[in-house]
Each structure stands twice: as C-alpha cells, then as structure tokens.
C-alpha cells in the first residue's frame, strides 16, 4: 500500500496522541477501583476508532502497534506490552468487523471495542499469570466497558463533527 506524506504525518500524529492518552490513563488508574494490574480504561481507543474510519484498518493497526510498542518502551515495562497489545488488537478486530455493519453508529462500534479491549486484557492477565483467577473480574470489567465505550464513542463523534468541514480528511 502507498501512504501519502499527509497520511503518514497523520498516522504519526495520531500515534503520538494515542501515546499521550495512554499516559493520561495512568493518572487515573482503573486498577484502584478494580484491582487487576494492567487494566486500563482504554482511552487510546478513541484514536483507534478515529483512525479506523478516517484512514482505514491497516493504518489504524499500524498506529496501534506503534502506540503499544512505544508505550512499553517508554514505561520500560514489557509486561505492559502484552496487555496493551492483546487488549488493543482484540478491540481493533472487533471494531473492524462492527464498523462494516453500516447501520451501527460510532457508539455501538466503540462499546463493542471497549468490551473486546477488556476481554483481551483479561486474556493477557490469564496468560501472564498462568491462572484463570482474573476471569472473576470480567463481568465487572464488561460492565465498566459500557461506560468507557460510550465515552470513547462520544469523543470520537465530536471529533468527526468538528473535522467534517476541514480538509484534514482530504487526500
């Protein structure tokens, strides 16, 4: 595939934003309320949702990988890589599928993505620990994902509205 300079710049910017959002999450760690280490709200999914619609699945995936790897490198924590990768990629796959269902709005897509994100993270916790104990928290996390998904959807919808009349999206 060919990336135009504009697209490449956009990708880099979005990756940087996603990275910033991941850091923001650490300020309000979800794990205070739900004590599973490594569990995140998934704010960076806003970027994934946006990139998915604005640029396409391949670009969105690239941004996701860049965000996860850079995030883990900066944090110096390779444990976190598995968590963000599994969470992020699962969310991504579910959102790619859901976004093809044209009748779903951005809210439905991001709620599905958030739920998948949490499933992926629980899977990562199970893998890391070699124990199914974290499954105990999945129902709670799925409940939480309804709210985080709605939040992500709202932010993404605002973004699209604001950017619809700019030429940012134009090739």
């Amino acid at each position: 595939m060919k990336l135009t300079t504009k697209q490449l710049t956009l990708c880099a910017m979005l990756a940087a934003m996603a990275l910033a959002l991941s850091y923001l999450e650490n300020v309000f760690p979800l794990s205070l309320a739900i004590p599973i280490p490594g569990i995140k709200l998934g704010l960076a999914n806003i970027v994934t949702v946006f990139a998915l619609y604005a640029l396409g699945p391949v670009q969105a995936l690239l941004i996701l990988l860049a965000r996860c790897i850079l995030g883990a490198v900066f944090a110096g924590n390779m444990n976190a890589l598995l968590f963000s990768l599994l969470g992020g990629v699962t969310a991504m796959l579910v959102m790619i599928i859901l976004s093809r269902l044209r009748w779903l709005s951005v809210y439905g897509v991001s709620v599905g993505g958030a739920a998948a994100h949490n499933c992926g993270q629980v899977a990562a916790a199970i893998l890391t620990l070699g124990n199914t104990a974290p499954l105990y928290y999945l129902p709670v996390l799925l409940g939480v994902s309804l709210f985080t998904g709605a939040l992500t959807g709202l932010v993404a919808a605002c973004l699209f509205r604001a950017l619809a009349h700019t030429d940012l999206m134009k090739g």
Binding site: W103, L104, V106, V111
Partner: peptide
C-alpha cells in the same frame, strides 16, 4: 472525505451491541 463516514448518533442497533455486552 472520510473513507467511510460513520453514523454519529446512537441508534437502536447500538442498543443491541450494549445488550450483547
């Protein structure tokens, strides 16, 4: 414009996703 322009308002189908979760 956007590759695919998404629906920006929640609708009944979204409720279906929520129900599924």
């Amino acid at each position: 414009p956007m590759r695919r322009s998404p629906k920006l308002r929640p609708n009944g189908w979204d409720a279906l996703v929520i129900l599924a979760v």
